[in-house]
Amino acid sequence: MPASIAVLDVIKRFQMRGSEVLALDQVRLKLDAGRFGAIIGPSGCGKSTLLRMVADLFEPTDGRIDIGGAPPSRLRREHAIGFVFQSPTLLPWRTVIDNVRLPLRIAGISESNAPRKPTDLIDLVGLKGFEQALPGQLSGGMQQRAAIARALVMNPQVLLLDEPFGALDEITRQRLNTELLRIWAESGTTALLVTHSIAEAVFMADRVFVMSPRPGRIETTIEVDLPRPRTLGMMSTPSFHAIEGAVRGALFAHEAPEAPEAGAAAGAKLQ
């Protein structure tokens, strides 16, 4: 059962060398069950922190997070959260299939009672034939596929993705994004993706949450009404460009418009 995600007025402060830093300020976000959401923002805006709070890795300083009516801690204890990190985070001593089985092992569920069969998932992510390979024998893209299979093996109510393909080249990334959409559609789960690519956010999501830099806030929420299944061809349509433009506009809303003689201005800004 996919669950809705609601982030309600969440504030996060960190203690850093004695002083207090406000990382997230009054963040509000709503994503219906079974939908795909993308959080986009500049580096250091706290988007990964926000995703980690949804996964119960941190607790908000103030405010509340609600997943299908329950706090994240309960979902985590019920093994109902799937998380894909930026690095594959596979255990190098376990084979691909044993890495995919790890959540079952920890939850104490036998393979025959698994919510999803590890072998089926390996098939789904395109790693058939590599079940017995060690992670060190796979390319970065293949390792991340295994990590996605691992995140889905408990049939999670929410799938959280922290820039899952951020370390990969553009071509591999584009291909894996298309595949991720197929896998997500098949799984029927609610997905929340953190990214810093405008095109990726628009291509993947039903709803894009645009964050402002420090302290992080949800600046705007933009609905993406492109039909599904999404295809790479859509990325060159006017409607895609229009939504991209809207996201870009929201991201740079607070910056001074650049002068026509951009060279000098950009140079000055870089310092």
Binding site: F85, L102, I106
Partner: peptide
């Protein structure tokens, strides 16, 4: 991140 993974998996 492996430690985070084990936390999310509720180990």
């Amino acid at each position: 991140t492996s430690a985070e993974l084990f936390h999310v998996l509720s180990a």
